[in-house]
Design a protein around this nucleic acid. Sequence first.
DNA 1: GCCCATT
DNA 2: AATGGGCAACGCCAC
DNA 3: GTGGCG
Length: 315
Amino acid sequence: MKSTSSSSRPRTARPGPAGEAVAGVRITHPDRVLDRESGLTKVGLARYYGAVAGRMLPYVIRRPLALVRCPEGDQAECFFQKQRTPGMPPSIHGSKIAEHGILHVEDEGGLIALIQFGAVELHGWGSRLPESGVPDWIVMDLDPDEGLPFARVVDAAWTMHDAFARIGLRSFVKTTGGKGLHVVVPIVPEAPFDAIKEFTFGVAGEFARSDPARYTATLSKSARRGKIFIDYLRNGQGATAIVPYAVRARPGAPVAFPVAWRDLGKMDPRDFSVATVPKLLSKRRTDPWADFFDLAQRVPPAYLQMAHARRRKSA
DNA sequence: GCCCATT
DNA sequence: AATGGGCAACGCCAC
DNA sequence: GTGGCG
Ligand SMILES: [Mn+2]
Ligand SMILES: [Mn+2]
């Protein structure tokens, strides 16, 4: 029923000049270079996310997202976006939380649609729709000052692991694509962000008090000098953290990669990139985060209450 | 990548 | 028709 | 308030 004078009959089933489809999403400008260092192209990025989608989507679905978009490639400027904008396909869903627009995806088609729209990095809230006010994970973001050896960050991660273990919480660790690590604790989504954030502030403060030469809970540059900033601020409503398997818009296209605790000491975060991760995944015997969503654990109420009391005091 | 306002 | 800006929040925190 | 930061 199309009335075209120049019926462009498909000579082949081959994708046209607009590019090939990934997960049913046509990728335009497939050869656009997103990272000169690794040679990563837009279609290469789409194929990467398609390849890891099975592992990645559980951490992405229904989670309000912040994107780092680089639609013009790695030459031009990248920018953050957290609201759905008109022109995005229906697979990129919009919603509103406390008067502010958010976006989220429901499936692989939505994920790849984000890439078609120029997204490179995906950052997620700590909560998922429709219960957007109660986080289902805690992220302790370990941010080393410039020049600190990575072994110090590994040590901090283990100390964090032990601190959580002491109160009955299993934690998981991932690289961030940078020089830090994330220690992540899945929790039953029932305590509001404020309570969880206060709790994590308490944890960070404890680190800073018990080993002030190594740790600070204060974000400022001066306080950070020579130390690791225990960034608990990822645990507020609307705050985000890089999502597992997401790519960073940086030279080498590094990936935020879940690792096993026992492997922490043997690896270098730069080992994990768009170029290496799909192969590593297929070689892996097991997923180190396999039971992440099966734990049904909670911060002991006493610790949330302590946090609440501290909050009252400062109010 | 796409919308929109301005030229 | 072509060009150029925008696309984060809000939010918190330290000072 | 401003500046820094994610
Ligand atoms: Mn970090
Ligand atoms: Mn941080």
